[in-house]
């Protein structure tokens, strides 16, 4: 196909002056795109969700059809639950602190020492109110980065649904809390029964390293100890980093 030279002077160019060839050229481009979209997908890897029929057209009829998002995609927030159904959040305010849009509002409360739930006695602090104004949110994901407790994630892969009122975009704990419960080995309710001083049994545990009570973190994989016979002083064994 002849490449159109933009530097050509249109006043002397016969093709520009008669107009008809350029008209046909433009129609050809349009029809080429139309035909390609109709029969050939431009990107053969496009994986469109909820598409019915055998159509492979590039155009996605959102919201009936949707494209899948990459794994790191930041969608709507969710609060991660614990085993007992409460959010993992401990109301440390780090997400509210880092949030550049100031869209997170938290109010903290304290579990009573007489609370029926054993977990609650370990955790002490919890959010009485945790709301995100999804209209103000700029979906930067800094709250997820800041959270020390893995309590807030943006892995839902969904957009904020539409609402008829502004107040509908303010998401509170019941709306935010979803997903399977998550435990981490460092969680306090896995380490102790309550916030008071535990019974005596565990106290010596840390001192009895090597009896199999405590898994040891070795500085490097075990390897045969080299023994060197020397005539000098006995070498001092040290942990040396490789």
């Amino acid at each position: 196909m002849a490449y159109y030279q933009a530097t050509k002077d249109p006043t002397t160019d016969i093709r520009e002056r008669t107009y008809v060839p350029e008209l046909l050229h433009g129609l050809a481009v349009t029809i080429r795109h139309f035909m390609r979209n109709l029969f050939f997908p431009r990107d053969t890897n496009t994986d469109v969700l909820n598409r019915t029929g055998t159509s492979q057209i590039t155009t996605v009829s959102y919201p009936e059809e949707q494209v899948t998002y990459p794994p790191g995609y930041r969608g709507l927030h969710r609060l991660v639950p614990r085993e007992d159904g409460k959010p993992r959040c401990v109301a440390c305010y780090l997400c509210a602190t880092i949030c550049p849009a100031q869209c997170i509002h938290i109010e903290a409360g304290e579990y009573e020492t007489t609370d029926a739930s054993a977990d609650s006695r370990v955790i002490e602090k919890y959010p009485t109110s945790f709301v995100i104004d999804e209209l103000r949110c700029i979906v930067c994901g800094l709250c997820v980065e800041a959270c020390p407790k893995d309590a807030i994630r943006m892995d839902t892969g969904r957009h904020t649904p539409s609402e008829y009122t502004r107040s509908g975009f303010v998401w509170d704990i019941p709306r935010l809390l979803e997903g399977p419960p998550v435990n981490h080995p460092s969680d306090p309710w896995l380490k102790r029964p309550g916030s008071e001083r535990p019974a005596h049994a565990h106290l010596e545990k840390h001192a009895r390293i090597g009896e199999g009570l405590v898994p040891l973190k070795l500085p490097r994989p075990a390897h045969p100890v080299r023994t060197e016979v020397t005539s000098g002083p006995v070498p001092v064994t040290k942990f040396l980093r490789d």
Binding site: T113, V122, E124, K191, R192, S195, E196, R197, P198, H202, L203, K205, H206, A207, I209, L213, V214, L216, K217
Partner: peptide
């Protein structure tokens, strides 16, 4: 570099009307 658990003590010892202690 601590291996094993930390010593656990009382995390919420109410000392008086105004003060609470985390040992």
């Amino acid at each position: 570099r601590l291996e094993g658990g930390k010593i656990l003590r009382n995390k919420r010892k109410v000392l008086g009307p105004l003060v609470v202690l985390d040992q």
